[in-house]
Amino acid sequence: MSLFNDKYGRNGVKTADSEFIQRFNRVQEGGDPAEFFEWLTDVAERSKMRTSVRKSVGTNVVRDVDKFKTEYENRKTGKSFRIWSSKFPALDKAIGGYVSSNMYVVYGKSGRGKSAITLEEVINCAVQGANVLIWSMEMGWFEVLVRIYVSLSGDQGVAITEIDGQQMEAGFDSRAVRQGKLSEEFEAAFMDFIKKLNTIIAGSITVRAVDDQDFDSRTLRDLKADIQQTNADVVMIDPFYYLDYESNSNKTTGGAAADTSKKMRRLAGTMGVVIFAITQAGEDDGAVDEDGNREIKLPKRKDVMKTSALLQDAAVLIPVDTNAKEGRGLIGVNKGRDGGEDEVVEIVYLPQIGIIKQVASGATALNDFGF
């Protein structure tokens, strides 16, 4: 029996604390106390905002010119507004870089490189000076670090590899690093390389991974706390659909995912960070040519899976498709608030040796890499 059983006060009028009573009763009947206290915290924060005395509301177009000038100068010097360049020049030109306070959605079919491509982008942001926070909810921390180290070594060209007669600068072999089977010579070179990462990365990279023992709660409240603690500028959510979704306020199908997308977009704005949210694209059989090679084809806007709200909330929608066996791939723009839609970027895709880069334009094309 509930401690409180009166939903209504005198004269049958619903009381202000009736929701409190209902939620409290659910806890008494075996409900989740954590959910109850989270709701109490939200109520307290909203109450504090309502009761605080505001000196002004919003920004006055005429009177707040000095405020505008100050913000303009801050953006000019990069104090309050940052644009992080993409690793892929054509993509960077198409979307104008990754702008703080925005959410970018990267999507593709399972196993087609969406995590690898996004990781390349956030590593590149860290090299430029960004503090990067990675929420890896599928891969363990060691696997993520291997990918990061191999990627950076590929950019540095620590080794030379020959592919179909073409010599290319490459990095360490990811499988050998992952399995601890580097040769004695390469192991020494690898250990020396990771000691000098501070000379390559101007910012920082913090990884929260699926096998971290203290990473058992993955709400947007937890994400906000991690952003504050790491002073993050750029955040990677891999994948979006492994977050602990917000409550389904509208009680509609897919409402929890939609609410989470909207609130994450809002979080990017209030925290002034770039958020990369990774999700899946719808699967199909896939076309193959006469030789049995799979066609590389970018997914369409309608193929965004898990929630269509991601499509609406994204500043830019970035489809990805790759073929690691053939060493090539495509990155596109299916939605861009500042233009760039329908841009398609050809890339060399050899992540196992740290090579993920745009194919040079002009005389150099995919055929020059033997593909």
Results as ranks from 00 to 15, higher is better:
Gln229Arg: 14
Gly272Glu: 05
Trp135Gln: 06
Val43Arg: 04
Lys79Val: 15
Ser115Val: 11
Glu326Asp: 02
Gly129Asp: 09
Gly329Leu: 09
Ile205Ala: 08
Glu343Met: 15
Val61Cys: 02
Ala365Thr: 15
Leu298Phe: 11
Gly339Trp: 13
Leu119Lys: 07
Tyr8Ser: 08
Ala159Arg: 10
Ile21Gln: 06
Leu91Cys: 08
Thr206Ile: 13
Glu45Trp: 02
Ser52Cys: 14
Ala176Pro: 01
Gln166Glu: 07
Asp42Cys: 07
Pro351Cys: 08
Phe4Leu: 13
Lys196Asp: 03
Val53Ile: 05
Tyr242Leu: 12
Gly327Ala: 04
Phe68Tyr: 15
Lys7Gln: 03
Ile201Cys: 12
Arg178Val: 05
Ser80Lys: 09
Lys262Pro: 01
Asp285Thr: 15
Phe81Met: 11
Met168Thr: 03
Lys196Ser: 10
Phe190Val: 09
Gly97Ala: 04
Ile83Leu: 09
Ala90Glu: 00
Val99Ala: 14
Glu184Val: 12
Asp291Ala: 05
Val304Glu: 02
Ala44Phe: 00
Glu290Ser: 14
Asn102Thr: 13
Leu310Glu: 10
Gln312Glu: 11
Lys251Arg: 15
Ser261Leu: 01
Ser153Thr: 04
Phe20Pro: 06
Asp303Ser: 09
Lys55His: 10
Val105Leu: 06
Asn250Thr: 07
Asp289Gly: 09
Phe20Glu: 10
Leu243Ala: 05
Phe68Thr: 14
Met191Val: 12
Val316Pro: 07
Asp244Pro: 10
Ala232Thr: 09
